[in-house]
């Protein structure tokens, strides 16, 4: 379990290696899809996203001075919701404009037996933080998370 596809958002994700922690990377045709992929990779750091039912919707609203800091804000907002609601998320619908991200994230409460959560994510870091398009025009959104 290190990469996957989120059909609903057509966002793809993968993990990349950082010796102490873990990198999360999302790809997509749009920045929003890449942000969804990165969020899915965040969930996958904790458990198999396929085991997380998108039952309950949570609204997220955050802002940052540039798109890279906005990615860290987005992931940190999800970390906060995961922590305070004791939930895991498996479906994401972010909308980005003018340095602001508004999103709906769907998920369910963590169940230790079923989800076997491996780690708690402490926060998204600015290490290997990058949001941009590759040569083929595909969006990439990535950073290392502290676990």
């Amino acid at each position: 379990m290190s990469a996957g596809q989120n059909d609903q958002a057509r966002a793809r994700w993968e993990h990349f290696c950082h010796v102490a922690d873990l990198g999360v990377r999302g790809y997509g045709r749009t920045m929003e899809e890449a942000f969804s992929g990165a969020a899915m990779a965040l969930t996958a750091a904790v458990t198999d996203p396929a085991a997380v039912a998108p039952l309950t919707a949570v609204e997220i609203d955050c802002a940052a001075p540039d798109v890279e800091l906005l990615l860290a804000e987005w992931l940190n907002a999800l970390v906060y919701e995961m922590s305070t609601r004791r939930m895991l998320f498996s479906r994401f619908q972010p909308r980005i404009s003018d340095g602001r991200l508004r999103a709906t994230a769907w998920g369910e409460p963590v169940e230790r037996e079923r989800h076997q959560p491996a780690v708690e994510v402490k926060g998204a870091t600015y290490t290997e933080l990058h949001v941009g398009r590759d040569a083929a025009g595909e969006w990439i959104a990535q950073c290392v998370i502290d676990v």
Binding site: L69, V79, Y80, S83, T84, G123, Y126
Partner: peptide, 17 residues
């Protein structure tokens, strides 16, 4: 725990900007 993580997250952003 979560308190320290959140303080780290918030001040990292504020100090970076």
């Amino acid at each position: 725990r979560g308190l320290g993580h959140q303080i780290g997250t918030e001040f990292l952003k504020e100090m970076a900007t």
